[in-house]
Design a protein around this nucleic acid. Structure first.
Lengths: 128, 128
DNA sequence: ATATTATGGATAATAAAAGTCTTTGAATAA
DNA sequence: TTATTCAAAGACTTTTATTATCCATAATAT
């Protein structure tokens, strides 16, 4: 079990966008180059962030991506779930008599992690 | 990102072994049947638990697996790490100037989850 | 000895992640 | 209007990890 690289790309891109002014957009070319990933692949990832409503895209000359929501609102959890989805990390398919106690423990553990990711906002990382 | 099925098999097997007496071993056949998984595959998983020192195996007639360590010592985290390994869930390969702040946040989050998994012992789930 | 049971290696099947290529369509600039 | 710049989308391909299966071997009790 690992977080996907896509999540890493998304987090780094969001940090870059939050650090830059929200006025003029940054092209995917530039964002991709900074991370050593292909522009087409990165754009696929960024499209998911657009759909989640945390960034905006602009086509055409001088287009690109910029932050849309209030910077203060965007948490690590938001970004991660936009990429990885929000399904539970642990799924027990067996049909026990009752509810699965193991799954309950796993879910609690997961929630500890999530609550930390929810408390951390991406803008907290901006270097002064 | 998901926990593997192997982890689910391992957790359920450990629960079964802890619930049963530690005197006579249970065959992989029986354990596998209870979970609807093939004995050969389950035995591969259990071998990892053996190597991690939490269960013992006995070959030959009337052989099988039984708990080895003190039940009280075996945590969810022990079992999960025996199967999934103990590498970090998030790895940032980029070469930033300094240390990666994003990775630091992710590591903290992971540790929240781990500390919960470490606090929960498998024997806590035994049905009375 | 023989039946029973775990171990280990090789390999196959499946699924998920990571990435490419190409086309389309929107926006701008000339 | 036309050419240029850029994101979006879909169809693929490649790579990697997971989930197995099969078979030969080693250990052990009866």
């Amino acid at each position: 079990m690992k977080f996907t690289k896509a999540t890493n790309y998304a987090l780094h891109t969001m940090l870059a966008l939050v650090e830059s002014s929200a006025v003029k957009p940054i092209g995917v070319q530039q964002l991709a180059e900074a991370q050593g990933v292909s522009p087409t692949y990165l754009s696929k990832i960024l499209t998911r962030l657009v759909k989640a409503g945390m960034i905006e895209s602009a086509s055409g000359a001088n287009g690109g991506y910029r932050i849309s929501r209030n910077k203060d609102d965007i948490t690590f959890l938001d970004i991660i779930q936009a990429i990885e989805g929000s399904a539970s990390l642990f799924e027990c398919d067996f049909v026990h008599g009752e509810e699965c106690l193991i799954q309950a423990v796993m879910k609690d553990a997961e929630e500890k992690m999530e609550s930390h990711l929810k408390s951390m906002k991406i803008k907290d990382l901006i270097r002064k």
